[in-house]
Simulated assay, not measured.
Amino acid sequence: MATWNLSNTIHHLLICNGSSCNRVGAEDLTQELRKEISIRGLDDMIHTTRTRCNGRCHDKCVVINYPQGNWYKDLKPEDVTIFIDSLLDNKDYTGKISHSYNNHGFDRSPEVVTGIRKDPDKVKKVSK
């Protein structure tokens, strides 16, 4: 098991590999992102983590750029070069952002499905 030195990391990409994203190519997207990062010698700057479901199945494939707070939707392997370019240029990958963090919460792109609200009355309470 590796312990990465993250001191030079600028972008941490959380790549959803939940079942909905996997059905439309999340593993291919994950491998293509990692390959492009490696080819460009950006491993020290861009770290990737494969996650389970991020709860935005309608937006599959989902990638979250932390700490910037942008959630990207509908990413495909063929988007990887432009996506990495946008990260390096500190520009948003127009048309692919579903949500952006604004220091108070998330702004949702108008064309993105709002989704369901979490109902606190239906959440199972965990005893301490």
Score class of each variant (00 low, 15 high):
31 Q>P: 02
17 N>R: 15
79 D>Y: 10
106 F>Q: 04
94 T>C: 01
13 L>E: 01
93 Y>T: 02
93 Y>V: 02
36 E>Y: 07
40 R>Y: 10
108 R>E: 07
20 S>D: 13
33 L>W: 02
31 Q>K: 14
96 K>D: 03
124 K>R: 13
88 L>V: 07
8 N>A: 13
89 D>H: 13
19 S>R: 05
55 G>L: 03
71 W>R: 00
90 N>L: 10
127 S>A: 11
26 A>P: 04
87 L>P: 02
17 N>Y: 07
124 K>I: 14
60 K>F: 01
60 K>Y: 05
102 N>Y: 11
105 G>Y: 07
94 T>F: 08
29 L>I: 04
39 I>K: 13
98 S>W: 02
68 Q>S: 11
15 I>L: 13
97 I>R: 03
69 G>H: 00
1 M>P: 07
69 G>P: 01
121 D>W: 09
118 K>D: 11
24 V>D: 12
61 C>V: 15
106 F>W: 10
58 H>Y: 08
21 C>L: 05
84 I>S: 01
97 I>K: 08
29 L>A: 02
48 T>I: 04
117 R>I: 04
19 S>T: 15
93 Y>C: 06
18 G>Y: 08
112 V>H: 02
36 E>D: 13
90 N>C: 07
25 G>Q: 05
79 D>V: 06
45 M>F: 11
68 Q>E: 11
126 V>P: 06
83 F>V: 06
60 K>E: 14
74 D>C: 12
126 V>L: 15
